[in-house]
Computed example of a mutant assay.
Amino acid sequence: MDVQRLLIFREIARTRSIGGAARSLGWTQPAVSQHLRHLERQAGTPLVLRRPRGVQLTEAGQALLRHADAIAARMQAATEELEALVHLRAGTVRLAAFPSAGATVVPAAMSLLAQRHPHLDVRLREAEPPQALDLLAAGDVDVALTFGHAGERPAGTDEMVRMPIGEDPLRLVLPRSHPCAQPSDVPLHLRELAQDKWTGGCERCTDHLRQACESAGFTPDIRHGTDDYVLTQALIARGLAVGLLPQLALDAARDPGVAVRPAAGVRPRVLYLVHHREADQIPAVRSAVQAVADIAARAGHMAASPATAAGGAWDPGSA
């Protein structure tokens, strides 16, 4: 049955007259009568009995009215739910982020999003960029926060939008007792550490470390491999290695036993927000992307704030 005709019939039943339904709907009385006739032909039986002062529902009309009421209620519920989603009074956005961003950028962005849209449900999954993109392609998340090293071929497909939101500088991390530990604000060339033992990170980060060292004229002696930046710093603090860590990892957790120096000639990695091309039309996704981008902008290309340099919590508002 035609839903519009069911709703017209419901209005006839509510007003108890064809004329009343016409006035309520803003239609002409003949148009309402015609829709009623079509509906009765579909039903195969009269739905109303015409009376001098209006109409009376037949038993079939009363049965159909119950279904028409249910349909009207569901349509109203659908309208209200869609309005809530459009105006961000409800909705869910699923975000995947790599660990150091998940410990710094994302909580600040989630807090900002909660201030702007308190009823929006944001759900986080930790995943390195390749896994995050797989989750995005499979539809398991809506937005992926990823990174790319300088010279690396961008990941993703033509159906995805990759928006650069900032840079994450790479720092040389040394034991405080290391001869090159000072001065901390002067860039240090990788070749100065050619004789040291190294610790690598995730597979992509270790590959980038190896390439950067080879460009500096040596092959690094990589003794350890872990994507846990707390463990990496613990190894370095005890004099077991040196390493190349992103600033975000140091912002998330800084071991007091390490010294940090800028890495001369090493370009920062770029942070990207990735989502399906059509997803920016979804209010919840668009708002989440904006919140993460705003936090990245406040952080000043992810440079360490005075609080993080002193070992405090990462606060993008102070950057």
Rank of each mutant, 00 (worst) to 15 (best):
Q211W: 08
H117V: 04
D221H: 14
L170M: 12
D142P: 07
E203S: 13
E214D: 13
Q233T: 07
W198G: 02
L244C: 01
G243P: 03
F218W: 11
L235Y: 13
L174Y: 04
A249I: 06
L193Y: 08
G201N: 10
H119Q: 11
G151W: 02
V242L: 05
L231K: 11
P246C: 13
D142Q: 09
R238S: 09
Q131H: 10
P129M: 13
E152W: 07
T146Q: 05
Y229P: 01
M160S: 10
M163G: 06
R162I: 01
E128R: 14
G156A: 01
A212H: 04
E126H: 12
W198Q: 03
C213F: 07
H149L: 12
L133F: 12
L174V: 04
C202K: 06
Q233L: 04
G166Q: 02
H117M: 02
P118H: 02
L133Y: 09
V186G: 06
E159S: 15
F218N: 05
A234Y: 04
Y229F: 15
A144Q: 01
L245Q: 10
A194W: 08
T206L: 11
R125L: 15
Q233A: 04
R238Q: 13
A234H: 08
H149Q: 10
G166T: 02
D158W: 10
W198F: 15
C213Y: 05
M163W: 14
E167T: 11
P118V: 07
E159I: 05
G217H: 09
L190G: 06
D185S: 15
T232G: 09
L136F: 02
L248F: 10
A253L: 12
P164S: 08
M160G: 08
R153G: 05
A181N: 04
R238V: 04
V242K: 00
S215M: 12
I236D: 05
G243Y: 00
C180H: 13
D228N: 12
R191G: 02
E159K: 10
L145Y: 02
V161M: 08
G156T: 06
H224K: 10
L244R: 03
A252P: 00
G239C: 02
A253Y: 07
L174A: 03
M163Q: 14
G151R: 06
F218Y: 15
